[in-house]
């Protein structure tokens, strides 16, 4: 047992699109170390999203084993996988995906609610918002915040349960260059401070350039792995 936080062994994923079977992943094996910053790149249809979904425990591989933080996720039941997502994965989406009717604070509290945390829940959420520089705007709703600020709330929400990995899917895709840079700074800063593994799924070579290594996918296979 090493300090790999992610171990993927010959992952495959097949979909049925109507009558056609699509092979999205054709045997992907990779390891990601704890605290690493990794970018996953690849053109549309390369299997990038599928791999991200499996890494984020949103989907299961058709075959192959996937281990996240010591847990063999591919063998778990649905509710157990939900628990893993809650505890070990923080998601940052391109379109922020905040609950529109809830305040920033309530949005950040949500993962803790699903975890059943009642003690210091509000304080922890407030602390997370302060960490991303939004301590003043905890009562604001998403539509009262700028794109960059919404993404900060999303990062606070991803961080709040102290996950093993943060999975950021095009985190700067919906932002202007300046906010995008700020968000990247923030993500790298949390990685540096908390040691949380950061996985960036992106088209943007500028984003990928800030990762320690880049994993490229093409046609459901790893193209190259740069150490």
């Amino acid at each position: 047992m090493s300090d790999w936080v992610i171990t993927a062994d010959s992952l495959t994923k097949r979909y049925k699109m109507g009558t056609v079977v699509v092979n999205a992943l054709n045997g992907v094996s990779l390891n990601i170390g704890a605290g690493e910053v990794v970018a996953i790149m690849g053109p549309s249809g390369s299997g990038k999203s599928t791999l991200m979904n499996i890494i984020g425990c949103l989907d299961r591989p058709s075959s192959g084993d996937y281990t996240l933080d010591g847990v063999l996720v591919s063998k778990l039941r649905d509710n157990e996988v939900a628990h893993i997502r809650n505890q070990k994965v923080g998601f940052v989406f391109q379109s922020f995906n905040l609950l529109p009717r809830a305040s920033a604070l309530e949005n950040v509290e949500l993962p803790m609610r699903y975890a059943g945390v009642t003690k210091n829940r509000t304080q922890r959420a407030k602390a997370a918002l302060e960490l991303v520089g939004l301590g003043e705007r905890i009562k604001h709703r998403p539509n009262e915040l700028s794109g960059g600020q919404q993404q900060r709330v999303a990062i606070a929400r991803a961080m709040v349960n102290n996950p093993a990995i943060i999975l950021a899917d095009e985190p700067t895709g919906a932002l202007d260059t300046r906010s995008g840079k700020e968000i990247m700074d923030l993500l790298l800063q949390t990685n540096a401070q908390c040691g949380t593994t950061l996985i960036l799924v992106t088209h943007d070579p500028g984003v990928a350039a800030r990762a320690q290594r880049t994993i490229r996918l093409r046609d459901g296979l790893l193209e190259e792995a740069q150490a």
């Binding site: 509710n79 505890q87 994965v89 998601f91 349960n161």
Partner: peptide, 16 residues
């Protein structure tokens, strides 16, 4: 549907 997906991503179980 999207909200449901998000909630599930954040760890909501079926029951929730």
């Amino acid at each position: 549907t999207r909200e449901i997906g998000l909630r599930k991503a954040l760890g909501a179980r079926r029951r929730d």
